[in-house]
Simulated scan of single mutants.
Amino acid sequence: MFYRRAGVRHTSYVADRKLWPLAFDRRMLAVVMVVAITVPLWLGPLYLTAWALPMVIWATAAMGLNLLMGGAGQIHLGYAAVMAIGAYASVHLGRAGVPFELAVLGGGLAAALIGSVFGAAALRVKGLYLAISTLAMQYIVDFGIAHVPAISGGSQATLQAPPVTLLGLVPVDSDAGRYWVALAVCVVVASFLLNVSRTGYGRALATIRDKDYAAEVIGVNSFRYKLSAFWTSSFIGGVAGAVLAFCYYRAITPEQFHLDVSIQLVAMVIVGGLGSVMGSMLGAAFIFAAPLLLNTGLVALVRAGDLAISQELIAHIPLAVYGALIIGFLLIEPLGLAKIYDNIRKYILVWPFRHLG
């Protein structure tokens, strides 16, 4: 079989800690990267701008939230506010003449700073109280952005993002160029998070996620690591918000970062799989693309069958099916799409000798 551990020999700790010890995993990763990079070459402009580009950005944001929820076990219902801080800070920096790369990093730092301030207060409580505290952050940031003209220009104002220029020299004017910029950010974030779990920091977060008081007993400073998880997660969210503003929206308004966006991000993490980088990507693809595909499929089915269905019903059926799919996935595998993939992978690894699993 093409998917076996034969030939994999762990002769050192470095070899044992490889991210992809199996040759098939490395080949599959190479294929996925080639497909992702060449998307603008074979996907139409409409699908590139309406589907591929935002999905990559939302996957980046979901990975940042997953570090906090899946890595440290802390709920966050105000992640859209974190992205809003990054988006507005980076756009203001860009309009002030700061290069694109520094503006994006500045947006991430602004989001990390403000997110950590809220996190320091929120982490005094746990569970449902923590969720309510982060929800309060969402409403406070929403109110501040909408009612402080220096930030947004007003509740109905639109703030135009400067054009993307790499290194201050290379203008990025095409949809394909903006997609590649977003993809590069996504790859950097994914590489960072894949390696976090192999570090002492990642193991400390995992200990806190499982039992925070047990972590304190063995010498892990629970509050400090939780706060650092809030800082890192907020930084990634701010960077994702900046990329969203520069590469996708190109003009931002307060309505783009309301509570429903935070709920969608939480859904991406839960449906994809807590604590999984691949789960964040699968969850973003499912939450973002499923309604579009369901709506397109239903319209095609109605036209092919010449069915007499009202437009209102056509608009609501995909939403109902979409919700049923989410519930179905969670009933079949509560650990998300990443766990379903892992189950399939493990089955192939030992097939046809099931008793080895």
Rank of each mutant, 00 (worst) to 15 (best):
I326R: 00
V217W: 13
V217K: 11
D142K: 01
A84N: 09
Q138P: 04
A290M: 12
R345I: 00
V82Q: 02
R303M: 08
F230A: 03
G279T: 15
F257R: 05
L205V: 01
F100D: 04
R345N: 06
L67I: 04
V34S: 04
R209G: 08
Q160R: 12
A300W: 06
H10I: 07
D16P: 00
L298W: 09
L293A: 09
V104C: 13
G323V: 00
G154R: 03
L294T: 01
A245E: 07
H76F: 14
L77E: 00
L123S: 10
L349N: 10
P352E: 14
L68E: 04
G305E: 09
Q264P: 02
V172H: 11
I140Y: 09
K339C: 03
Y88W: 09
V266N: 03
K226D: 04
I37T: 13
L294H: 06
R203C: 05
L128M: 11
I145A: 07
P334I: 11
M55Q: 09
V277D: 03
P254W: 15
A15K: 05
V321I: 15
I140Q: 08
A190D: 09
V125F: 07
F143H: 10
L194Q: 12
A61M: 11
S116M: 06
S152Y: 07
T60I: 06
S90D: 00
R203D: 06
S133W: 10
D342L: 11
A190E: 07
N221D: 14
P254L: 13
G297Q: 13
Q264Y: 11
F353S: 05
L48M: 11
G241Q: 05
F223V: 08
G357Y: 14
I145E: 02
F230W: 13
G273L: 04
V56Q: 00
I57A: 03
A87Q: 00
L294C: 04
L193Q: 04
W42Q: 05
A80F: 07
A30L: 13
R203V: 10
Y213L: 15
V31N: 14
L301I: 15
M55E: 06
L19P: 02
A84C: 13
E333T: 15
L194S: 01
H10P: 01
I317G: 04
Y139G: 06
M69F: 12
L183D: 02
H147Y: 15
R224I: 05
G108E: 03
L193A: 07
T38H: 10
V34E: 01
P45N: 13
R354Y: 14
A120D: 04
Y13P: 04
A214G: 03
L349R: 11
R27W: 15
P54Q: 15
N195G: 14
A96W: 05
G336N: 07
W58G: 04
V239H: 07
A146D: 12
A122G: 00
M268C: 12
G7M: 06
I287P: 00
I145T: 02
V185M: 02
V39T: 15
G177R: 07
F118Y: 09
A251Y: 14
L313T: 14
L301N: 07
